[in-house]
């Protein structure tokens, strides 16, 4: 079986990262924005694993373990903040959460 070239993985990672970044910028629902940030993180994970295989070094794999933990922590905190926000504002739309301006 022929191996899939590393370039493809890197391209897929770049595409996923871009989709995530654009999603954060255009979507207005905080939950969806949170998911887009997760997509960005996981796109980077894919890149790291692919690079680790290509370069034959373990660093790429090890970084991914840490990133997964960090992403889980971020989601936990993000959801907690979102629940508090929803309690006070009764919405998850970022455009309606705009008390601070100037």
């Amino acid at each position: 079986m022929q191996d899939v070239p590393t370039t493809w993985f890197l391209l897929l990672g770049a595409i996923l990262f871009t989709i995530g970044a654009v999603g954060v910028l255009v979507r207005r629902n905080i939950l969806v924005m949170l998911m887009c940030i997760e997509l960005m993180m996981n796109a980077v994970n894919l890149t790291f694993v692919a690079l680790g295989r290509e370069l034959g070094s373990l660093t790429g794999q090890v970084v991914v373990f840490f990133t997964i933990v960090v992403a889980a922590v971020e989601v936990t905190v993000g959801l907690a903040i979102l629940i508090e926000l929803n309690r006070l504002y009764q919405t998850a739309d970022v455009d309606e959460v705009a008390g601070l301006k100037g």
């Binding site: 995530g20 940030i37 960005m40 993180m41 960090v70 993000g78 903040i81 926000l85 008390g99 601070l100």
Partner: peptide, 17 residues
């Protein structure tokens, strides 16, 4: 809470970059 949400979204966005 609004500050926390803004900080969180933009902060983790930047972390991903």
């Amino acid at each position: 809470i609004e500050a926390a949400m803004k900080y969180f979204i933009l902060g983790s966005f930047a972390s991903a970059f």
